[in-house]
Design a protein around this nucleic acid. Structure first.
Lengths: 236, 236
DNA sequence: GTCTATATGGAGATAGAC
DNA sequence: GTCTATCTCCATATAGAC
């Protein structure tokens, strides 16, 4: 498992210790992440972020220039970690499968698990981030920023799904992938409606339990589409 | 099929014809619906709505009092139609099934189809409305307003799913229902990422095609959860 | 890097004439 | 019911002292 190299212990900049501004920046990013996840881009003001990070408002502009840019940085900050996790999982699955196509269950788990895992075990920052990304996923206004950071990995997975789907139509594969994403983000964007529908007797908050239900659910769906494709081919 | 009674041909108010304000109100609701769907609640200003409806801003406040109230009215306007469509479909399925549980495919179609049908065939107003509701579904800040208008019907369906799921755990049924909703709203909230992922060669915009793929996908998922429940019971 | 003060514009809501 | 004019507050962004 290829790991990202650690940054050098001593900064290359003038100071030998981490600049004070860096920890301030991170605090602002954390606060912005939380506000954007809870109230959305337009529902969050620069003042909200500044006061949440206990810093004067001018300092937010100083570090991030504009609100749009700050939003981009929030999304960007954890995106490459997610991409690496998913690509590593995909590579492991390829190696284990040898020449054969990867099992659908493995493929689905490899894509969904890193996102679910960070959401449950990554601490409050990751929790906010995953919910923010989940909510962005259904908002066309933000499709460009999501695409920028998530499409490359998604395309790698779709290529692998194509191998595993036994000649299913290309459109079916894209749609099935989209169903998977919809199911995943609907779960991670908790608290969802399970809580209100069941009047509190059930909840999506234990994501690992939901994950163990989601995988066979999705696998059965993909399998059905694959079998339908085979049936159609056998008729021809 | 129980139908909503028509309003009397002659208004009970002073005027014998429909008040001019009513058509203005509808125009404002249409514009608000579109703006909220595209830019969200906080991304839409009362001025946007007024100028889109070609009316002075004060008139929007006059008719709807506050922006929050206007938003509620937008959601409310088409919610009861959706509820009726879904409950009628459920009732027909019950009648057709007699004493037996309703087939999972029928149950899923009855819930998903009215939403998809209105989105594709209901004209631009319904298109905007369904996309707005779809995007709200993953936003906890708006869960109360969605719950107010959609939970009763959802609970009726869940009760019926319980009968058809062969003794699956209650939690599994709620989660499967939530997976279905996630898949549905991810599809209706187009343009989704299928377009960008496939670089334009595929699209979710023909919702009826996607619907015909979605139903077997979801049915297979529900079936898998049902079978798992039976397997566990047989072991005991 | 940090902070106070402020420039400039847009927000929601309302008063009051017609 | 409609519209002009306006009140009050909050938004993003920046200038310039320390």
């Amino acid at each position: 498992m290829k790991s990202v190299p650690k940054p050098p212990a001593v900064s290359l900049k003038k100071s030998t210790t981490r600049a004070a501004g860096d920890v301030t920046r991170e605090r602002m990013l954390d606060t912005a992440e939380e506000c954007f996840a809870t109230h959305g881009f337009h529902g969050t003001s620069m003042r909200d972020i500044a006061s949440g990070a206990s810093t004067p408002i001018a300092l937010v502009s100083y570090h991030f220039k504009s609100k749009d840019n700050l939003f981009d940085r929030v999304i960007e900050r954890r995106a490459s970690y997610m991409a690496t996790r998913r690509m590593n999982a995909l590579q492991e699955a390829r190696t284990a499968a040898g020449d054969k196509p990867i099992a659908l269950q493995t493929l689905i788990e490899s894509y969904v698990w890193p996102f679910v895992e960070r959401s449950t075990r990554g601490g409050p920052g990751w929790k906010n981030y995953s919910q923010l990304v989940a909510r962005l996923a259904n908002s066309p206004a933000w499709t460009p920023v999501i695409s920028k950071h998530y499409d490359d990995v998604a395309r790698a997975y779709i290529a692998e799904f194509r191998r595993s789907m036994n000649g299913a139509a290309d459109a079916s594969i894209y749609h099935a992938f989209s169903f998977m994403v919809g199911t995943m983000v609907g779960t991670v964007a908790e608290p969802g409606r399970v809580d209100s529908l069941s009047q509190g007797s059930h909840t999506t908050s234990d994501l690992e339990v939901v994950f163990r239900l989601m995988i066979p659910f999705l696998e059965a769906g993909f399998n059905m589409i694959r079998k339908d494709a085979r049936a159609k081919r056998d008729l021809a």
